[in-house]
Amino acid sequence: MGKVQRHQGANQADRWRKRAGRRRLSRRLPRPLLGLLLLGVGTLAAAVTQFAIHSTAGQQITSGLQTTIGLQSTIANWTEPLPGPMQGRASVIDGDTVEIAGQRIRFNGIDAPESRQYCDDAKGFEYPCGRRAAQALDEFLAASRPLHCSFVDRDRYGRLVGNCERADGRSVQRWLVGQGLALDWPRYSSGAFATEQGTAKAARRGVWQGRFDQPWDWRAANADKVEKVSQPSSGLSVLGNPGCNIKGNVSVNSGDHIYHLPGQEHYDETVITASKGERWFCSEDEARAAGWRKARR
Rank of each mutant, 00 (worst) to 15 (best):
Y267T: 00
Y267Q: 00
S283F: 10
F281M: 06
G263I: 02
T273A: 12
T270M: 01
F281N: 07
Q264G: 04
D285C: 01
S283I: 14
W280R: 08
Q264S: 15
G255T: 13
W280L: 08
H260D: 02
A274N: 09
E278P: 03
H260F: 06
L261P: 03
G263C: 04
L261N: 04
S283A: 13
W280T: 10
G277I: 10
I258S: 01
T273L: 13
Q264I: 04
L261M: 13
K276P: 05
I272M: 02
F281S: 05
I258T: 14
D256P: 06
G255S: 11
R279K: 14
A274K: 10
G263A: 09
H260R: 13
E269Q: 15
L261D: 02
D285K: 12
E265Q: 11
E284N: 06
S283P: 07
T273I: 15
W280M: 12
C282K: 12
E265T: 14
G277W: 06
D285R: 11
E278M: 10
I258D: 05
Q264Y: 01
L261C: 03
T273F: 02
Q264H: 07
I272A: 02
H260N: 09
H257I: 04
I258P: 05
G263Q: 01
H266N: 15
I272Y: 02
G263L: 01
P262E: 11
V271S: 08
K276Q: 15
T270R: 05
Y259P: 00
H257D: 07
G255Q: 09
E284M: 08
G277N: 07
E278R: 00
W280I: 08
C282Y: 07
R279F: 04
Y259H: 08
E284T: 15
D268S: 09
G255Y: 09
E284A: 11
E284C: 01
E284W: 05
A274P: 05
G277E: 07
Y267R: 01
R279G: 03
